[in-house]
Amino acid sequence: MFPEDDEDPAALFRAAIGAVTPMREQSPSIPAQQRPRPKPRARMAEQDEAQARGEFARLLQSALPLEGGDVLSYRRDSLPNRTLQRLRKGHYSVQDELDLHGATAAQAERLLRQFLLEAHDHDLGCVRIIHGKGLQADGGVPVLKNLVDRLLRLRADVLAFHSAPPNQGGTGAVLVLLARR
């Protein structure tokens, strides 16, 4: 049954194995251990962001727009009213500032989101956002002021905000009190 010792080793192997049936060709597959893992995605954060954008758009359409001289003011229910009064009077030290003058609504939204993320990352407590009074706005509606108001109300890291005192920009700027990490 086995060939002589002087034969080809491959022939010896085939003789030892016996008859074989060739497998049909398959596409090369990578074992599960060697497959690259997909990059992680923050699906819940993406869903939250999409939901917030939808609500933001809904709020922009349903709410009465603010006028140039209107005061921006907001406080979370969990925050004492005294804190908002101190913010209104400018008692908190401003640690950073963002000026949105000349930006389109889309640019301003992107800049504001990025600014607030960075402020949160650096654990800043109070920031100033200059949006302008909107006196040059078409139709008399201050676009950036309304954008800032609506966006800040929807952010979880914003505890309170109020239009700045007159010596810090008045109704053309807003002081924002941020939650600490």
Rank of each mutant, 00 (worst) to 15 (best):
R155K: 15
R75E: 04
M44E: 15
E118F: 08
G139D: 06
E67M: 15
L151T: 13
R181S: 04
R24I: 08
P28A: 09
R24D: 15
R181K: 04
L12M: 15
L135I: 13
V143S: 09
Q136V: 12
Q95K: 01
I30P: 00
L177A: 08
L151Y: 08
P40F: 07
V143E: 07
D48M: 14
R128Q: 07
R14N: 09
P166W: 09
G102V: 03
P3V: 03
N167V: 06
L60V: 13
P40N: 02
L112Q: 05
G125K: 10
H91G: 04
F56N: 12
E49K: 11
L147D: 08
Q47S: 11
D138T: 15
A45D: 15
E49N: 04
L59V: 06
R41Q: 14
L60T: 10
V174I: 05
A119P: 11
R155Q: 15
Q47A: 14
C126Y: 02
K133P: 01
L64N: 11
T83Y: 01
Y92E: 04
M23W: 13
A19T: 12
Q47V: 07
A103T: 14
G172A: 02
M23C: 12
L151G: 11
D138M: 14
L144W: 05
T83N: 04
A10W: 12
L147M: 11
T104I: 07
L152P: 01
E55S: 04
G139M: 01
H162K: 02
G68K: 10
C126N: 01
L59N: 13
Y92R: 03
H122T: 08
D121W: 08
H131Y: 08
A32M: 10
A156D: 11
I30F: 02
S78D: 07
Q34E: 14
D149H: 12
A164L: 06
E118P: 06
L87D: 10
P142A: 09
F115W: 05
I30S: 12
D5R: 05
G90Y: 02
F161G: 00
A52T: 09
H131Q: 00
Q114I: 05
R53G: 00
F2L: 15
E67D: 14
A119Q: 02
Q114Y: 06
R43K: 12
L12E: 14
G169R: 07
T83L: 08
L84K: 06
D138S: 15
G18P: 09
G54W: 09
D8R: 08
